[in-house]
């Protein structure tokens, strides 16, 4: 790891000021991706702005018909939250399946979303549930937030403060993990709210998380696993690597989506 200066702001405002003064700085949330990346020297920020002590950044509450989660809330806290378990059990289950217990005790929802790893779990929930990302500057709808692999709508000096998830009528997340890394080769989050059904796919797209138009169209008439029988997803734009070809991932998407719909209906 290359040397950096370390800052521990007490407020989001201070964090934004520090980021403004250090254009090369990175935000440190749970560090479960950033620190390994820095250790491999794939990232070498001149400064780290640690949000660990910034006030009002973590916690879970229900506001109206939304579950609002602070950006520094750890995966383990989302996984075991009674509020999330009651309102959006699929989100609690997703958080409980990230990494391993020690990683879940450090990693944060804000960090995962801001990083937008193409195989991360959280972006699929944010996109399928139609969440709103609340930053220190504005509110960003999920459909506009994710802008390709490791790329988001966040501007310089912009920090995620909260994520607001509308409570769906039915939802579930299902992933096909790589047997070694346990990262999703294909992960599918399905969410039904009123007449709208959204299907977000992680792990498969070469541009990161995306909505599957084919699966959404099939589920529009009837939210049922059988609706996905015979659905074909195009392999173009999907990842092809040593773990799986793009054709294999394309095949997996409706298969995993079908399992997710069955899981959502069982609840």
């Amino acid at each position: 790891m290359y040397a950096f200066s370390y800052h521990s702001p007490k407020t989001v405002r201070q964090a934004a000021t520090l980021l403004g003064k250090n254009p090369d700085a990175k935000v440190l949330a749970g560090g479960q991706t950033l620190l390994p990346t820095m250790k491999q020297r794939l990232a070498s920020p001149s400064a780290l702005v640690d949000l660990g002590k910034a006030e009002g950044m973590s916690g879970i509450e229900v506001k109206g018909r939304n579950v609002v989660i602070g950006a520094m809330t750890r995966h383990a806290d989302v996984a075991t939250s009674a509020i999330v378990g009651e309102a959006i059990p699929a989100l609690a289950a997703l958080a409980g399946g990230i990494g391993d217990p020690a990683v879940r005790n450090r990693g944060t929802i804000g960090g995962s979303i801001a990083n937008n790893d193409p195989a991360a779990d959280y972006p699929s929930a944010v996109l399928a549930l139609g969440a709103t990302i609340i930053t220190n500057k504005r509110k960003i709808p999920a459909d506009q937030f994710f802008q390709g692999m490791f790329s988001t709508a966040l501007e310089e000096g912009e920090v995620i403060v909260k994520v607001s998830f509308p409570i769906p009528s039915k939802a579930a997340y299902e992933k096909f993990p790589n047997p070694a890394s346990r990262y999703a080769m294909v992960g599918v989050f399905v969410a039904k709210k009123g007449s709208e059904t959204r299907v977000a796919v992680t792990g498969a797209g070469s541009d990161g998380v995306f909505r599957s138009a084919e699966c959404e169209a099939a589920l529009k008439a009837r939210f049922n696993p059988k609706s996905l029988d015979g659905v074909k997803v195009k392999a173009s734009g999907l990842n092809s690597d040593i773990h799986a070809s793009s054709e294999y991932r394309a095949h997996l998407i409706p298969v995993i989506a079908k399992r997710a719909v069955a899981k959502a209906m069982a609840k």
Partner: peptide, 23 residues
Amino acid sequence: GACVVHVDGRSIKSCTTLAVACD
């Protein structure tokens, strides 16, 4: 996981945590 310790009562991987972040 050979580096697992408890920070404020929760297991974490100490090879993936900065000492200064545990102030």
